[in-house]
């Protein structure tokens, strides 16, 4: 999946079709969300595994799982800068 996003980036940049700033910002947010989702996939499944062994880990697991969300929030700043 990561390879696919790389490819997409290459096409967009080389073809030079992306001249609209707002479209670029939207794409940036979208890609950041994609990255966050990918990161959460691994953390989430590890967190569920840990919770299955010890239920006290629920809070820690939840916090660690949503940490990559910060990526999306930071990317959202771009929208306001454009």
């Amino acid at each position: 999946m990561l390879e696919a996003t790389n490819e997409l980036g290459n096409v967009v940049l080389q073809e030079g079709t992306l001249t609209d700033g707002e479209a670029a910002a939207a794409l940036a947010v979208g890609l950041a969300a994609l990255g966050a989702g990918y990161a959460e996939r691994g953390i989430g499944s590890a967190a569920v595994g840990a919770m299955a062994e010890d239920e006290d880990l629920f809070v820690n697991g939840l916090i660690l799982t949503v940490l990559p969300e910060t990526l999306v929030i930071l990317a959202l700043v771009v929208v306001f800068l454009v």
Partner: peptide, 14 residues
């Protein structure tokens, strides 16, 4: 494969 899930459980058991 889902190594994250299995490793988390196994580490807890360890």
């Amino acid at each position: 494969s889902n190594p994250e899930y299995v490793v988390a459980r196994v580490r807890a058991r360890r």
